[in-house]
Amino acid sequence: MQTAIPCTMMRGGTSRGPYFLATDLPADWATQEQVLLAAMGSPNRQQIDGIGGGTSLTSKAAILSRSSHPEADVDYLFAQVSIDKLYVDIAPSCGNILAGVGPFAIDAGLVKPVDDETVVRVRNVNTDKLIEVRVKTPNGQVEYEGDTRIDGVEGTAAPVLLNFLDVAGSKTGSLLPTGNVLDLIEGVPVTCIDAAVPMVLIAAHSLGKTGAESKIELDGDAELLAHIEKIRLAASWKMGLGDASGKVVPKVALVSAPRNGGTLTSRYFVPDNCHASHAVTGAICVSTSVLLPGSVSAPLARQVGPNGLVQLEHPSGQIEIMLDAAPTAQGIEIRRAGVVRTARKLFCGELYVPSSIWAGNHSKAS
């Protein structure tokens, strides 16, 4: 016997995964975690027995519910489902999967659409931060087709504007959780920063790299990955995040000078392999570091563009972040970080998990 769970599969930005209503899942996290693992087919490198795609970009899920927060319409919990371990990480957020949250919330009836454009106010449960999501809704319906192109995704689609509010200190409570713009960890200069996601930034040349290497080249360098992980684990303690073993936060990026007209080059790690393009939250964090004098990024970056435009070069092209920042006595305040993504609904239906894992709220069996 199997339990049927309503599910919508969507591409959000450069990621893909199932989107669920919280009311269709178990109420307790322990069972919910087992349901997500079974749904994705973990632990198995190919995720043969589930809908996961065998990569960190396609082993993600979104769980939505109506929000009780006075400034939010919906609550969004992001889940990074481990591929080869029985573990689901809900510490980080994901800005790419977030791109599908607005359209899903409207289609699912959580938010009433208005003509032309609908603003969905989202509370990210992972970080307790607010995001304003603007979705094209001509004639009161979500528009998925359009002419907006983002690097890392084939074709075009309708734009989804994400405005991240109050991004500093997403997990640590501070933009610079160590109290320093620059730290020396394992003999390597790093910038530990928390803007939308906690990160450890390293100048690529500090590890003997140019920063222009491909994902394949970086993933194939076992010595480099081991060195990065050693730095990451040590930095996590300094940032007040504790033991990061087996966890995906903090993330890491190797930064270098731009080569194709952008502001900075970034190679983002997730964290045990290089992202094929770039995470949205990670792009906000790396972009913010450009504005910090003394950071590892600042001397490598070109001048920030008009209206706070930062163009990050990544393995698949570029991602653009618009930063609304103001100087403060402590450094800078990031009032808003905007990014344009796209999303596409792939299918709606029922996803099945063994009833031995969960019998369901109102169980349907097959």
Rank of each mutant, 00 (worst) to 15 (best):
L25H: 12
K345S: 11
A61F: 09
L175E: 09
K85R: 15
T23A: 12
D128S: 12
K251H: 11
A359V: 09
D28F: 04
S93L: 12
A168F: 01
I357C: 06
L309I: 08
G173W: 03
A38F: 00
I216G: 04
L233N: 07
T118F: 00
F347P: 00
R123C: 06
P293A: 08
G152C: 11
S295Q: 04
T265V: 08
P70D: 04
Q318H: 14
A4P: 02
G262L: 10
R232F: 01
K238W: 00
T156D: 12
L161R: 14
G308V: 03
V296C: 03
S214P: 02
P271E: 00
V286I: 15
L25T: 08
P258S: 13
I321H: 06
C285R: 10
A222G: 00
G155A: 11
T58K: 05
E117C: 07
P250Q: 03
G169T: 05
R302M: 15
L161C: 05
M199A: 14
T23L: 02
V160W: 11
R259F: 08
L98A: 11
R259C: 02
E213K: 08
N361M: 15
Y268Q: 06
G102F: 10
V280F: 04
G179D: 07
A62W: 02
A212P: 00
A359N: 06
M239V: 01
G109Q: 06
W237M: 11
P113F: 04
G338H: 01
R335C: 05
V248R: 12
L110Q: 04
E33I: 09
G173V: 05
K136D: 12
A204L: 08
K112L: 10
P250Y: 03
A72M: 00
D147N: 14
T263S: 05
